[in-house]
Design a protein around this nucleic acid. Structure first.
Length: 255
DNA sequence: ATGGTGGCGCGGCCA
C-alpha cells in the first residue's frame, strides 16, 4: 500500500500536475492540502476518471484538505471534534482498516503573533484527537503539511532558522507530544540522502539553492511502522513548470 | 530589516 501527502497550493492550478503524478505513481491514497477551493468546485469528476474516490473539506480562498483513494473512503470526519475552527484544515477517513488523518497545520506566521498562538493551541487540541484516533484505529497514519521541521537535519540552515516560526522550540515540543503518543516519522526509519526537504520558498530561488525545510510528514502508528518498507520525498514535481512550493512525501507499507 | 514569488481575486492577505 502506497500512501502520499502533497500540499498542492491550489488544486485548481495544480490539478493537471496531480493527475500526471497520480498516473505515474499510482498511490493507493493521496492526502492533499491547500486545495483553496470551495466544496462545489472540487474536481471530483477528473479524479474519478483517473480512478480515485475522493472526500474533501474546503473553504473559499484559503486552506482546504482532501483525501483521494483507489478504494472507497469510509467514516469521514471533517475538522477536529470539539474544536470550533472556521479554517478547513483536518480531514479523516478510513481505507480498508487503515485510518488516514490528513492535516494542514497552521503556518503560524511569526513567533509571538496571534497566528502563532492559534497554531500552538491547535496543535495542543490535535494531540487529544490523535490520542483518540490511535485508541480507535491501531493502523493509523497522520500525514500532511505540519509546518514544523522536526530536527536540525530537516532544515537547510538550522542556525538561521532556530527560534523562528516552523522551527521554534514550542512548535517542536508540540510535535514531540504528538509523536510521544506512539507515532513515528516514517522518513527517518530509513537511511536518507542529506539535505532532503519538502518545502522551498518561492522567493529568492529557494528550490534552486535547496534552501528548504522538511515540514511535510507521514507519521505512522506502531502497527504500520512495523509494515513500512520505504519512505521518501519525491522532488520531481517541485522542478516542474509552475510548481507547488511543496513536494510529495510518500510511504510504502507491506499490507 | 527588507524583499524576494505565487495564489486568490482585483486590494490586500496569506504563505
Amino acid at each position: 500500500m502506497k500512501i502520499a501527502t502533497w500540499n498542492v497550493n491550489s488544486l485548481r492550478v495544480r490539478l493537471p500536475q496531480v493527475l500526471v503524478w497520480l498516473d505515474a505513481n499510482r498511490p493507493d491514497v493521496l492526502a492533499i492540502q491547500e486545495t483553496k477551493l470551495t466544496d462545489d468546485n472540487f474536481p471530483a469528476e477528473p479524479l474519478a476518471a483517473a480512478g480515485y474516490h475522493a472526500t474533501w473539506h474546503g473553504q473559499p480562498t484559503y486552506n482546504g484538505v482532501a483525501i483521494l483513494s483507489r478504494t472507497p473512503l469510509k467514516d469521514v470526519q471533517m475538522g477536529m471534534p470539539g474544536y470550533a475552527d472556521t479554517q478547513a484544515r483536518v480531514l479523516a477517513a478510513t481505507v480498508g482498516d487503515v485510518r488516514v488523518l490528513d492535516l494542514y497545520v497552521p503556518n503560524g506566521q511569526e513567533v509571538g503573533s496571534e497566528k502563532y498562538a492559534y497554531k500552538l493551541d491547535w496543535l495542543e487540541h490535535l494531540a487529544g484527537v490523535v490520542k483518540a484516533e490511535l485508541e480507535a484505529w491501531p493502523k493509523l497514519v497522520v500525514l500532511g503539511d505540519f509546518n514544523i521541521a522536526p530536527a536540525d537535519e530537516d532544515v537547510h540552515d538550522p542556525e538561521e532558522w532556530r527560534g523562528k516560526v516552523l522551527f521554534s522550540e514550542p512548535e517542536k515540543a508540540a510535535l514531540g507530544k504528538i509523536l510521544d503518543l506512539g507515532l513515528v516519522d516514517s522518513f527517518r526509519l530509513f537511511d536518507q540522502p542529506p539535505e532532503v526537504f519538502s518545502w522551498w520558498d518561492y522567493r529568492a530561488a529557494g528550490f534552486r539553492r535547496n534552501r528548504g525545510l522538511r515540514i511535510d510528514l507521514v507519521l505512522l502508528s506502531q502497527a504500520l511502522t512495523a509494515k513500512c518498507v520505504a519512505a521518501r520525498v519525491d522532488l520531481e514535481p517541485r522542478a516542474w513548470e509552475r510548481p507547488s512550493d511543496h513536494a510529495p512525501a510518500v510511504v510504502e507499507l507491506d499490507l
